[in-house]
Design a binder for these strands. Structure first.
Length: 893
RNA sequence: GGGCGAUUAGCUCAGUGGUUAGAGCGCUUGCUUCACACGCAAGAGGUCGGAGGUUCGAAUCCCCCAUCGCCCACCA
């Protein structure tokens, strides 16, 4: 990092790559990322959603990191101990699939390797690639406490998993049962409801005839999965359906297999759908499973775990499910039992990971009883102990939580937390324990076998807010940093993760919610508004963008200009806009430092608010104070986009376009009093901007503050003399001066008016013109600012007073009238026309206001302040109208 | 079948009751002004998706409708 270069040697454009690495190292070496544990202030804690350990950083991660880091940095600068805790998730299925794919290339499988050898391979993989995601987050400037980084399979979080399982079991909230679950034949594991994604697909509705055994007729059923008829154990009709009520109690012969199955009546059957008769396959359909339970039907599983049919499928045993479907249909056709094949679009479930079609089937799995856990989690949001931003997601949360179903947590995988259950071979006792038991609790036998399955990845993720802090041990971190402050993540994992964290966090911590605010961000979409996905090939790598535009630009672009929870399209223009802003900051500093270096002798200590020498100084200081106040308010309300927009506009439009330009006029005239104000306001602006653009602000700040005497440097930057730990500005750092604000507003209006006239009359940009400013109430202001106005509007000479002569163009402003005598340039007729138009506009405005002010209802019901404001507006409009008609009179219009 | 969101300038988006609705990009015009062409200055461009209602006052609140997107839901 170059901190002491003379300003004229500073490059004209900000080059992110020349600074980012060094600055990050400086922060890291300085120890600024770790929370100050000596502080008495309540800490700010944000636990990073752990990315998949095998994954690469995508746009969603970049957004998460940008948002979490800006919150963290703001709180750090407020002097709060801040903990931004990073980590990674073992991501059960995802990781296992990746390694299995590797094995396949080598021509082997995990089964060939065996469990231990396979797990070794996965760990090797994690060793090799697991730190990639951390490095990527560092490139984004994440001010995480890396000394506390956690991995879900670390011993601490693993113990937390076993302890939670044990506690849930003790309270009867976890059980093992035979239930219908979603099975992925590719991953050969059970899935939870959430891991199944449904999509509408074209298929067929097969109408199949089931013949009554007493020869009295037949029933036609409709199904989308004809192969499952091999597992049918009944045919059901609605008991109120007159077409079929006579059949209830009879038996039909199951096509192909010829088994005798009963016709039953059940309310669940919709008379309207299909033929009104339903084949019942309790083993392979959730509705059928329930019907089976109600009627005590046998449940015949016809499928192997790889999706092929098993011995119960008779002639189709061994065939894959889709081949079997075709074969069954063919056989039905041959048997004359296929009545109709109706094209049919219906919803098909796919595995979230493999994309394979999911099969519902009955299987023995572990389930978490969620209703009891959900109740306090719902209450926590209702009583506002947890606030969801934006609020509309609370409704979504309630809806899901209030209809929550038991959570299948066992997975038939090898990579993950193995279920802490040991079965006794001798007495069949189920031993649930935190640590591996030596012998069976019931009979003392040592013939124990641990459950081969692992837990759903989201089970350990659900403990993340406290397992990372040492729970169940009563560590000082747990004591100090639980509950956390904000949980920031995408709305797409509200159910997967947030809901479960709230449930398990409260369960494990005596009902204490794991965080007080949930901030949900939207999705980053491609420029066409499409979701980014690998298969679509429209994925942009955030680090490529960071390379091209700088990390600050990427972060700024991702977090500005959209509201919480809304999706955002990202395009190059937006990144350019953000990059340009970083460059603007860089160059404004370059200007200030060049002037400081040039006038070193005159430079005073500007580390504290300088005494304003001029109206402009009072104005920019006042604006600084207001902006600081606005930004802090927006931050408190999680309106990050607004905070950044406010800063962008202040720095660019007010500080650069007006204050610097006005200051130039004085500096050129040899008045150096703007220098301390320029430096001070820039320094405070850098602090304000730091959470959003950490690198460029730190780079500039280091160079700027190196131009202060040592003691002042200390005072500015805290112990470390780094912006990252400087205090965040407040209203007091400026000083609201409404008078100065109003007066400069008038000056700005005047300068703009003259520029406008110049452009309209196509006055050569280098030609200075004369102007007369008539501003009775503001004469002293105009006098004092005359030099600046003259320079900025290219006026020469600037005369105060009443204009004379008629070959002139005039603009009537709020507090002044400016007249530019441009003999030979101004077309008087056109000028009269223009003024008449303006008169009409003013008259229209006045008429509207008069109407409103003569409305009794308005006077009676609107607040006094509003009425008063309208009166003032009307008076001002009338006064301006008078001035315009005076000018018209002079011109003879 | 429910629910949510979006619909505002050519494009991408801010803006939740109080002047004449804002920004960036793009566009037009003029600037090699000693911080910045990743720049400066001036400008054009909108009946805020449609209809109705509440209100002194509606882009903003309510009702209905339309289009697009997302989420949830066991109709085989």
């Amino acid at each position: 990092m170059t901190t002491n270069n003379p300003a004229h040697e500073i490059p004209k454009a900000y080059e992110p790559s020349a600074h980012e690495t060094d600055i990050y190292k400086m922060w890291s070496d300085g120890g600024f990322f770790a929370p100050d544990t000596s502080s008495d202030k309540p800490p700010f804690v944000i636990v990073m959603p752990p990315p998949n350990v095998t994954g690469a950083l995508h746009m969603g991660h970049a957004l998460t990191t940008a948002l979490e880091d800006l919150m963290t940095r703001w709180h750090r600068m407020l002097g709060e101990p801040t903990l931004f805790l990073p980590g990674a998730d073992h991501a059960g299925i995802a990781t296992q699939v990746v390694v299995e794919r590797e094995l396949k290339k080598e021509g082997t499988t995990r089964h060939d390797l065996g469990r231990d050898e396979f797990l070794k391979r996965v760990w090797d993989w994690v060793e090799k690639y697991g730190s990639r995601i951390y490095e990527q987050n560092k490139r984004l400037g994440a001010s995480c406490d890396w000394s506390r980084r956690a991995f879900t399979l670390d011993s601490g979080p693993s113990r937390a998993v076993r302890q939670t399982f044990f506690d849930l079991y003790q309270k009867g909230l976890i059980y093992r049962g035979e239930r219908i679950i979603n099975w992925c034949p590719s991953c050969t594991t059970a899935l939870s409801e959430l891991e199944v994604k449904y999509s509408d697909e074209d298929g067929a509705l097969y109408h199949i005839r089931y013949v009554l055994e007493d020869g009295s007729g037949d029933l036609v059923i409709a199904t989308t999965r004809p192969e499952t008829l091999l597992g049918d154990t009944a045919v059901a009709v609605n008991p109120d359906d007159e077409r079929y009520s006579a059949f209830i109690g009879k038996t039909v012969s199951l096509p192909i297999l010829g088994r005798s199955i009963p016709v039953i009546g059940d309310e669940a059957v919709e008379t309207e759908f299909g033929t009104g008769a339903l084949k019942v396959t309790p083993s392979h359909d959730p509705t059928d499973f329930e019907i089976g339970e109600r009627h005590g039907l046998e449940s015949i599983n016809i499928m192997n775990l790889d999706g092929s049919l098993n011995e119960h499928a008779g002639p189709f045993a061994g065939q894959d499910r889709f081949a079997a479907r075709a074969a069954v249909v063919e056989r039905l056709r041959e048997d004359g039992l296929l009545v109709e094949v109706e094209p049919y679009r219906h919803s098909v479930g796919h595995c979230d990971r493999s994309g394979d079609v999911v099969e519902p089937l009955v299987s023995r799995q572990w389930f978490v009883k969620t209703a009891e856990l959900a109740a306090p989690a719902i209450a926590a949001v209702r009583d506002r102990s947890i606030k969801i931003v934006p609020e509309r997601f609370e409704k979504v949360y309630y809806n899901w939580m209030e209809n929550i179903r038991d959570w299948c947590v066992s997975r038939q995988l090898w990579w993950g937390h193995r279920i802490p259950v040991w079965y006794c071979d001798d007495c069949e006792e189920v031993n649930v324990a935190v640590d591996e038991p030596k012998s069976c609790d019931a009979c003392g036998s040592v013939a124990l076998r641990q459950d081969p399955d692992v837990l759903d990845t989201w089970f350990s993720s659900g403990l993340w807010t406290h397992s990372t802090l040492g729970w169940p041990e009563p560590t000082s971190d747990l004591e100090r940093f639980y509950p956390g402050t904000v949980m920031e993540t995408g709305y797409d994992i509200l159910f997967f993760w947030v809901a479960r964290m709230i449930m398990l966090g409260m369960f494990n911590n005596g009902g204490q919610a794991p965080f007080s605010t949930v901030y949900l961000h939207g999705l980053i979409l491609d420029p066409e508004g499409k979701k980014m996905s690998k298969t679509k090939g429209n994925v942009t790598d955030p680090l490529d963008l960071a390379d091209a535009y700088g990390t600050d630009a990427l972060r700024f672009a991702l977090t500005t200009g959209n509201a919480p929870g809304n999706d955002m399209r990202l395009n190059e223009q937006k990144l350019e806009w953000a990059r340009n802003f970083a460059n603007k900051v860089w160059n404004s500093a370059r200007f200030v430092m060049m002037n400081m270096d040039r006038n070193q002798d005159a430079l005073e200590d500007w580390s504290e608010r300088p005494t304003p020498q001029h109206r402009e100084d009072r104005w920019i200081l006042s604006r600084l104070g207001r902006v600081a106040d606005d930004v802090n308010t927006n931050m408190e309300n999680f309106q990050f986009g607004d905070a950044q927009k406010t800063l962008h506009d202040f720095i660019w439009n007010e500080y650069c376009d007006w204050y610097i330009e006005m200051a130039k006029v004085r500096i050129r005239a040899g008045d150096l009093t703007p220098l301390p104000v320029l430096a001070y306001v820039l320094e405070r602006a850098l602090r304000l901007l730091h959470p959003f653009m950490p690198f460029v602000t730190e780079a500039v700040w280091q160079q700027l503050t190196s131009r202060l005497p040592e003691p002042a440097q200390e005072r500015l930057g805290g112990d470390g003399r780094a912006l990252i730990v400087a205090n965040y500005p407040t209203l007091e750092d400026g000083a609201v001066d409404e008078k100065a604000e109003g007066e400069i507003e008038t000056v700005v209006e005047l300068v703009r008016a003259v520029r406008n006239l110049r452009a309209e009359f196509r006055v050569n940009s280098s030609q200075r013109i004369p102007a007369v400013v008539n501003s009775p109430g503001m004469a002293d202001v105009m006098g004092e600012e005359a030099a600046a106005i003259g320079a900025l509007a290219m006026i020469e000479p600037l005369t105060l007073g009443q204009a004379e002569g008629d070959a002139a163009a005039s603009l009537v402003l709020k507090h002044s009238t400016v007249t530019v005598p441009l003999a030979g340039v101004v077309d008087i007729d056109a000028e009269i026309k223009r003024l008449n138009e303006e008169l009409a506009t003013l008259a229209r405005g006045a008429k509207g206001l008069e109407g409103r002010l003569s409305n009794e209802q308005f006077l009676a019901k609107a607040p006094d302040a509003v009425v008063e404001k309208e009166r003032e507006r009307l008076a001002s409009l009338k006064e301006r109208r008078q001035r315009v008609s005076d000018i018209l009179g002079r011109l003879g219009g």
